[in-house]
Computed example of a mutant assay.
Amino acid sequence: MNIYDVADKAGVSIATVSRVINGNQNVSEKTKEKVLSIMKELGYTPNVFARGLGLNTMNTVGIMCTDSSDPFLANAVYYIEQELRKNGYDSFLCCTGYELKNKQNYLNLLLSKRIDAVILIGSSYLESNVKDNSYIMEAAKEVPVMLINGYLNKPNIYCTLCDDQQATYNATSLLLKEGRKNILYLYTTKSYSGIQKMKGYKEAILTKQSTIDEVYIQSCPNNIEKVKDRLLKLSEDGLVFDGIVTSEDLLAVGSLKYAKTKGISVPEELSIIGYNNSILASCCEPELTSVDNHVETLSLTTVGTLMRVLSGNTVPNRTVISTDLIIRNTTNFSKDIRSLL
């Protein structure tokens, strides 16, 4: 039995059931009695709202990320854990890797701990095969599922994401306005976020030409030296490029190493833009122009949304955060171009 069964049998919304469980006053006494009666009839004891029923739960939220060594994910974990603690919640962290089976196993493990909710950090939790996302939807029948940087339009799943498509569109468009003719796009994965970024790049390119030359879209390993080697090979094969837009700062740093190896001047001969505005952007030389997707805002917004859900409030399924382009020394935008930001 789950909250959906209770709502269906009572003829009310899931939000109404959650309000009843939490003692929200915006429910009539008649509706409250009906919902509680059906819960008793069905033998339903909800994990997510057990705190409100005085059932001595752990006041704990599960957090899942694929790779805690990734700067974006590590920062998100930090901000989320801190904000949960401020709201009286502890957390369990699982670093799942990218294999679907491991993700499923870790989510089941967290559910067995009687968590109040689960937060999935990163769009790598969304599989291209829709059926493979069923384990997330099943979990959402028991507890709220918060998804950062991905979008899944299903009940009890709440998504906080950046406008990645617009961000890469803007970055690529600025390089085109700067006069770059051949812009390379580097990415690591085709996650939900990765697909949105690639769409933005393609959309910008198509404002200048009628078709996309796929050779300028390159999948790269998540490794600085291997990115450098990939670009060296592309150059040796005759590919000409004077601009690089990347889906991750690490790829941009690899591009800088390529330029240094080849004796190419950045940004005079080659402009480079990273993504995430991570610590890598200010550690390299020259410092990296990068898209800031506001990991702190994403994280705090996610926890804020969760707190409203746990209080029985109705909240949107999707919250979109805008990005900023932080200009440093790997681009050479004129004052006129900067004014477009």
Results as ranks from 00 to 15, higher is better:
Y201W: 01
V266Y: 00
L111H: 08
D229M: 01
V12M: 10
Y201K: 01
T305I: 12
I21S: 01
S91H: 07
T246E: 11
L152P: 06
N56T: 11
S255E: 06
I63A: 08
T323H: 10
K103N: 01
I337S: 05
Y98M: 07
S91T: 11
Y125K: 05
Q104P: 00
S278P: 09
L232V: 13
Y98V: 11
S322K: 14
C94E: 09
E33S: 14
R328T: 14
K228Y: 03
L147D: 03
K103S: 01
K335R: 10
P144G: 04
D116W: 00
S193P: 00
N317Q: 14
I136E: 01
K86I: 13
N222C: 08
S112L: 13
L84H: 10
I205R: 02
E214G: 01
K226N: 03
C220H: 02
N108V: 04
G97P: 06
R230S: 13
V20I: 09
S299G: 09
G243I: 06
G263P: 03
K228A: 11
I244P: 05
E287P: 03
P71R: 02
Q166R: 14
I195Q: 09
I38W: 07
K262P: 03
N293T: 13
R114K: 13
T160H: 06
G150Q: 08
I279M: 10
N277G: 12
I115N: 06
T172V: 06
G274W: 07
P144L: 04
N276F: 03
T261M: 03
S68Y: 11
S339D: 15
K202S: 04
Q165K: 12
F92G: 12
L300E: 15
E138Q: 11
I119L: 11
I244M: 05
L310K: 10
K199Q: 09
K262I: 06
Y89D: 08
N223D: 11
D324S: 15
L110Q: 13
T211P: 00
I327W: 05
G274D: 13
L288P: 08
N156I: 04
T297L: 14
D116Q: 13
S339A: 15
T168Q: 07
T66H: 06
L340Q: 12
P155L: 06
T323K: 03
C283Q: 14
E41I: 02
G200M: 05
V320A: 03
I63Y: 06
Q25R: 14
K226L: 11
K131T: 00
Y135Q: 02
V240C: 08
C283S: 14
V130T: 11
S219G: 12
S290P: 11
L232F: 02
K260D: 15
Y275D: 15
N2Y: 03
A167P: 02
P286W: 07
V227Y: 00
I136G: 00
S278Q: 10
G274S: 12
T66Y: 02
C284V: 14
L310P: 09
I136N: 01
I63P: 01
T96W: 01
A10L: 10
N133E: 11
Q166C: 08
I205S: 03
N26K: 10
D90K: 09
I21L: 15
V145H: 04
N153K: 12
E81A: 12
I38N: 07
S112H: 09
K199R: 08
M58F: 08
N22V: 13
I14R: 10
K181I: 08
Y216Q: 07
